[in-house]
Nucleic acid binder design. Structure first.
Length: 333
DNA sequence: AACTCAATCAACCGCCTGGAT
DNA sequence: GATCCAGGCGGTTGATTGAGT
């Protein structure tokens, strides 16, 4: 027989997470590290499904998450990776480790889809005026040879744009995307924003700021519990609102510098590096989904091709392209 | 000030895959 | 090999927020 069920759905709480729940979850993960989600609700007393706990952690609480304000470069990367990989948000997110797949998905659905639609409309309008458009609606009627050439052109265009997005003035972003073992791995070179647990405390603090406004009573309860957990205020940077600065200081003192969460980083990051590493999430996901074993080396080829040094891009681009069987590479789109 | 509507995004749902039994 | 479950993923929903009237 298999394992017991992850959670019985009776008595499981739904809806937005409260700061109290966040604190409980974060405290538990600090102690035990992420993983074994099934045990989280029972061990913490949270009336949440294990899935919900995992989601809350991966999408909101885990360290190193950047929220809001997608940069132009990130936008370009998302657009081009979406063109290459389709709606495989986890795979796309693996190239932007500071972003969650949910965030990218939302951003795509709310912003980028519209932008691209407008662009397409413009292109269609132009084609009606006599301009030819590569994405015209007559594409289905073109011959296979034409289609293959067009595909190669599209791939080349996408690659150029992606290279453009990644270099050269975007060195800060590029520093985050380094080829490793043929794939991409994340290294955070930004000393201003180290990937420590404090960053997730900031996330919670930000959450609290909004939450305090809407429900000051329960917020103070949460903050009191946080404050009683650790009395010493060694506040370094306060993101607190003017209304509740001391409460947020209390919270940040709990999770911020010197709170012991740094030790969590060193221990938990090894776990995280597995759960968060681009290659693991990317290719584990692939292996589980539509990509078969034959397609994996092609994707790594594709990545190599995409992120190869631009100076050799044309030459190698052709080589890699010629290695890609058209029928199979078409599946990528 | 009150209302409507659109935009945003956190969270849920259902499905799939790999691993455990 | 069959069955069951945990974890992961993409699609979708619904509450909240902000802009416009």
């Amino acid at each position: 027989m298999g394992r017991p069920p992850c959670c019985d759905k009776v008595g499981v709480k739904k809806g937005p997470w409260t700061p109290e729940e966040d604190i409980i979850l974060v405290s538990y993960i600090q102690e035990h590290g992420p993983g074994n989600w099934r045990a989280v609700p029972t061990n913490t007393g949270l009336l949440r499904c294990s899935k919900s706990c995992r989601l809350r952690w991966t999408n909101y609480l885990r360290p190193g998450i950047k929220r809001g304000n997608f940069t132009d470069h990130e936008e370009k990367i998302i657009v081009h990776l979406q063109a290459l990989l389709g709606n495989r948000w986890a795979a796309i997110a693996s190239y932007l480790p500071q972003r969650t797949d949910n965030d990218i998905k939302n951003y795509w659905n709310t912003h980028l889809k519209k932008k691209l639609k407008n662009k397409n409309l413009q292109a269609e309008a132009q084609s009606k005026d006599g301009f030819s458009s590569p994405s015209s609606s007559h594409s289905h009627s073109i011959s296979r040879g034409q289609w293959e050439r067009r595909l190669q052109t599209d791939i080349h265009t996408a690659r150029q744009a992606l290279c453009e997005a990644l270099s050269p003035e975007k060195s800060n972003l590029r520093s985050e995307l380094k080829p490793s073992n043929g794939f991409l791995s994340y290294t955070n070179n930004n000393s201003d924003h180290p990937t420590t647990y404090a960053s997730s405390a900031e996330n919670i603090a930000k959450l609290l700021k909004g939450w305090v406004k809407s429900s000051p009573k329960s917020a103070s309860t949460a903050m009191n519990s946080a404050a009683t957990t650790q009395q010493s205020f060694n506040n370094t940077e306060s993101t607190s609102s003017e209304e509740t600065p001391r409460k947020l200081e209390a919270f940040e003192s709990m999770f911020g510098a010197g709170s012991g969460f740094e030790s969590f980083d060193s221990s938990a990051n090894s776990d995280l590096s597995q759960s968060m590493s681009p290659e693991s999430s990317f290719f584990q996901g692939d292996s589980k989904q539509d990509l078969n074993a034959h397609q994996l080396p092609q994707l790594s080829l594709l990545e190599k091709w995409l992120f190869d040094d631009q100076s050799t891009s044309n030459l190698h681009g052709k080589d890699y392209l010629s290695d890609l069987k058209l029928d199979e590479s078409a599946d990528i789109f």
